[in-house]
Amino acid sequence: MESVTRSESKSMALVSVGHSGKAAPGQFYMIKCGDFPVVPRPYSVFYEDLAGGTTTFLIKARGLQTSQLVEMKPGDVLKIRGPLGSPFPSLVNAVLVAGGCGFAPLHFYARQYGYSSFFLGTETYEELAFLCLFDDLKETHGDNMVTDLFMESPVDGPLIACGPSRMLRTLSETDRKDPVYVSLESRMACGTGMCLGCPAKMKDGTILLVCKDGPVFSGRDVDWEWLT
């Protein structure tokens, strides 16, 4: 681990490791710190600095592993596996919608390919202040949903979204002509398609795996009833 930047109350942190694996926006790594918890967890790439040889993750402290990760110190050792999964397509004038940690892959996307509009919703004002890294971010926090913000001022163009399943479902089911790409969330164990632990059903009945076939899917293809 190279460096850690924490939000004011340490509810979020940017954790950089000395590794670059030529990740593309939307891809993730399986990360393990120490012996506990036993099973690694997936984290999207927030940014990869190829020249500097570092990969950065955005961590929100909320459980056994994430509360350890935000407390890490430079020099601590993490076991990482990746990059894994399929990336977002690179589109012209994409509209980005992020909820909470869903900001991570969209931040990487925005830095790599640009965007036409970028919406962000967080749980607290502190998180918003921590993630306010673009001047023209359309933001909201607390009880005000980012989906409502987006509906109030809908923008044309292909949509790319990452956040809680409910948010992704709402965006996928809105009446828009442009494509919608979502990065699905799921519990994972292997992260590579072996254990069949992270299924997503498509409307045509096929069962795909979030880790191997995703995490990026066309939101209109997903059978949301089965998933949520």
Partner: peptide
């Protein structure tokens, strides 16, 4: 067999419960 609907995994810290 299609297998079970998700969630199929839940973590327990010391291990994992799988319901594939």
């Amino acid at each position: 067999r299609e297998g079970n609907p998700p969630p199929r995994l839940v973590d327990c810290g010391y291990g994992i419960i799988a319901s594939i």
